[in-house]
Simulated scan of single mutants.
Amino acid sequence: MDIRFEKREHLQEKPDQKNLGFGKHFTDYMFVMDWDKEQGWHDAAIVPYGGIPMDPATMVLHYAQETFEGMKAYRTAEGKIQLFRPEMNARRMIKSNERLCMPGVPEEMFVEAVKALVKAQEDWVPSEPGTSLYIRPFMFATEASLGVHMAKSYKFVIITTPVGAYYAEGINPVKILVEDEYVRAVKGGTGFTKCGGNYASSIAGQVKAEKMGCTQVLWLDGVHRKYVEEVGTMNIMFKIAGEIYTAPLEGTVLPGVTRDSLIHILRDWGYKVNETHLSIDDLMKAGHDGTLEEAFGTGTAAVVSPVGEFVYKDDSVIVNDFKIGELTQKLYDTLTGIQWGKLEDKYGWTTPVE
C-alpha cells in the first residue's frame, strides 16, 4: 500500500507516563484513507492529528453507519514494539462492516495501516509498567445526503493514545447490576458488531447501575431476559464448580479477542470451557451455594475485570469474598506477560512493529 506522509510543523510535548489515564492524550499523527464506488480504497495517508471536515448532511450523523475497533501496541523490556493479534481485529471489523453494509478494509491493508502509524509514532509508545499505546481504527459514511441507504463514500481513520494501567491501584473487584429492563442485543441485530449504536444504547443501563451503587451492568438476552450475555462493554466468564462458563457466539455478543485468547489458555491448562447459555437463576443459585468461585469480564482495555458482587432484583451474591480469584489473577498475569513480551508467545499471537 502506498501511504503518503504529511509532516507536522511542531510536535507535541509528550505527557507524563505516570499519569496517562485512558483516552486523554492523542498522538501527533493519524492514518486516513477514503473509499468510493469508483476508486475503491485510495489516498492512504499519515497526517497530523486534527479535525475532520464534515458537511451537516454527512450520513453518519443521521443514520449511524459507523464501526470501530480497539487494540494496543506494547513496548517490551528490550524496547521493541509489538501488537497483539491484529488480524483478529481486522477480521472482526470486516464482519461488522458487512452487517452495516459498509465496504471492508482488507485484512492485510488493515494490519499494514496500523503498523505504519504505530511505527511513525514509536516514540509515543510508553515504557512505564502497565502502559501501552491504545489504537482506535474506525470507519464512517461520508456521503452528504439524506435518505436511508448504503452511502457512496466512506473514510477509514486510525487514531492512537498512550494509556496508563487500566487499574492504577491494582485489580479490584467491582459490583455489577443485572439488568432486566433494558436489553443490549437480539439475534439478527448488531450485537456481534463493534458499532457505536451498541454502546450508545448501553449508556442507560450504565446510568441506572451507577445510581444503584454498581460499577457496571450484566446484560441478559433480549428474548427471554434469562441468559447472561455481556458485562458492560466486555465479555464475561464464570468459574462454577471448577468449570468455566461464557455466553456462546450466536450473534448477540461481541467475539472478543481477549475472550478467544483466554479460552485458548484455559483449555491448555485443562479447564473445561462451556460456551453455553447460563441462566441468571442458575448463576445466582451458584453464588448462594458457594459453587460460583470466580467471575470476570474480559476485554482489550482491562484484560480481565474481576466481579465481586452481582445484584439481581432484590437479591445479591458476593463472589470470592469480594477478592480477585486465583485463576483470574493468573489469567491476567499470563496474557499481559505475552502482550508485553515477558512470557513466551507459544501461540504466535504477537506481531512486531519494525
Results as ranks from 00 to 15, higher is better:
Met1Thr: 14
Arg4Tyr: 11
Arg8Met: 14
Leu11Val: 11
Gln12Arg: 14
Pro15Thr: 10
Gln17Gly: 06
Leu20Pro: 09
Gly21Pro: 01
Phe22Gln: 04
Gly23Cys: 01
His25Arg: 00
Thr27Gln: 01
Thr27Tyr: 03
Phe31Leu: 10
Val32Thr: 14
Met33Trp: 06
Asp34Glu: 14
Gly40Gln: 08
Ala45Asn: 00
Val47Met: 09
Gly50Gln: 11
Thr58Pro: 08
Met59Ser: 15
Tyr63Ser: 10
Tyr63Trp: 10
Ala64Cys: 12
Ala64Tyr: 10
Gln65Lys: 05
Glu66Val: 13
Phe68Arg: 04
Lys72Asn: 04
Gly79Met: 02
Leu83Ser: 07
Leu83Ile: 05
Arg85Cys: 08
Pro86Gln: 01
Glu87Gly: 01
Met88Tyr: 05
Asn89Gln: 10
Ala90Tyr: 06
Asn97His: 01
Glu98Val: 12
Met102Cys: 09
Met102Asn: 08
Pro103Gln: 09
Gly104Lys: 03
Gly104Trp: 05
Gly104Leu: 05
Glu107Phe: 03
Lys115Glu: 03
Lys119Cys: 02
Ala120Val: 00
Asp123Ile: 03
Trp124Met: 06
Ser127His: 13
Ser127Gln: 13
Glu128Ala: 15
Pro129Asp: 01
Pro129Gln: 06
Thr131Ser: 15
Ser132Tyr: 06
Leu133Asp: 04
Ile135Tyr: 04
Arg136Gly: 00
Pro137Asn: 02
Met139Asp: 03
Ala141Met: 02
Ser145Leu: 13
Gly147Lys: 04
Val148Phe: 02
Phe156Gly: 05
Val157Asn: 00
Ile158Val: 14
Pro162Thr: 02
Pro162Tyr: 04
Tyr166Gln: 08
Tyr167Gln: 10
Tyr167Pro: 07
Ala168Gly: 05
Ala168Gln: 12
Glu169Lys: 13
Asn172Gln: 15
Asn172Asp: 09
Pro173Tyr: 11
Lys175Trp: 02
Glu179His: 06
Asp180Ile: 00
Asp180Arg: 12
Tyr182Cys: 11
Val183Leu: 14
Val183Lys: 13
Arg184Ser: 11
Val186Asp: 06
Val186Met: 14
Gly189Met: 02
Thr190Gln: 02
Thr190Leu: 13
Gly191Ser: 11
Phe192Val: 12
Gly197Tyr: 10
Ser202Trp: 07
Lys208Gly: 02
Met212Gly: 08
Gly213Tyr: 03
Cys214Glu: 09
Cys214Ala: 13
Thr215Glu: 14
Gln216Glu: 15
Leu218Thr: 03
Gly222Ala: 11
Val223Lys: 13
His224Trp: 05
Lys226Trp: 07
Lys226Asp: 06
Glu229Leu: 05
Val231Ser: 05
Gly232Lys: 09
Thr233Asn: 07
Met234Leu: 08
Ala241Tyr: 00
Ile244Thr: 05
Pro248Gly: 03
Gly251Asn: 07
Val253Phe: 07
Val253Leu: 02
Leu254Asn: 03
Val257Phe: 04
Ile265Phe: 07
Trp269Val: 03
Tyr271Arg: 09
Thr276Cys: 09
Thr276Ser: 14
His277Lys: 15
His277Thr: 07
Met284Leu: 13
Lys285Thr: 13
Ala286Pro: 02
Leu292Val: 04
Glu294Ser: 10
Glu294Trp: 03
Thr300Asp: 06
Val304Asn: 11
Ser305Gln: 13
Lys313Glu: 14
Ser316Val: 00
Ser316Asn: 13
Ser316Thr: 10
Lys323Glu: 15
Lys323Ala: 08
Glu326Phe: 01
Leu327Thr: 13
Leu327Gly: 01
Thr328Asp: 08
Tyr332Val: 05
Asp345Arg: 06
